[in-house]
């Protein structure tokens, strides 16, 4: 059982993601933007983070960048799950320390495999 922080402003997406993870027995903490996610991450560090990129208040890249400055976020697997494919964003993702880049729509089996693999 892993503790997964799922961040997405689209409720449907968040629920789909959370359901897929919960069914596999993982514990899911949800957040709807980077800011909320950062607070939850600091309050009780998860084992892995899966976050959307485009979100209000604080986007996924900013969230990862901020989280990496914290003890709880150092070395933590943080995956971006987004519809974006632009190279400059991927480059930015690498710079802020994202663990990996996944494109929506997601394949539940792949997500579960990655959770096992990276934590």
């Amino acid at each position: 059982m892993k503790r997964v922080l799922a961040v997405d402003d689209t409720i449907t997406f968040r629920i789909m993601l959370a359901n897929c993870l919960r069914k596999a027995g993982h514990e899911v903490i949800e957040a709807e933007n980077g800011k909320e996610a950062l607070n939850k991450l600091l309050a009780d560090p998860p084992d892995i983070v899966i976050t959307d990129l485009n979100m209000p208040v604080m986007n996924g890249l900013e969230f990862i960048e901020e989280a990496r400055k914290e003890n709880a976020g150092r070395g933590l697997p943080m995956l971006l799950l987004t519809t974006e494919v632009a190279e400059h964003l991927k480059k930015k993702a690498r710079e802020v320390g994202a663990t990996g880049w996944l494109t929506k729509p997601f394949d539940p089996a792949q997500i579960l495999r990655l959770v096992d693999q990276l934590t």
Partner: peptide, 12 residues
Amino acid sequence: PDFVRSGHDPLK
């Protein structure tokens, strides 16, 4: 250089 910092682990 940032492999571990970005949440990876060579061992994993």
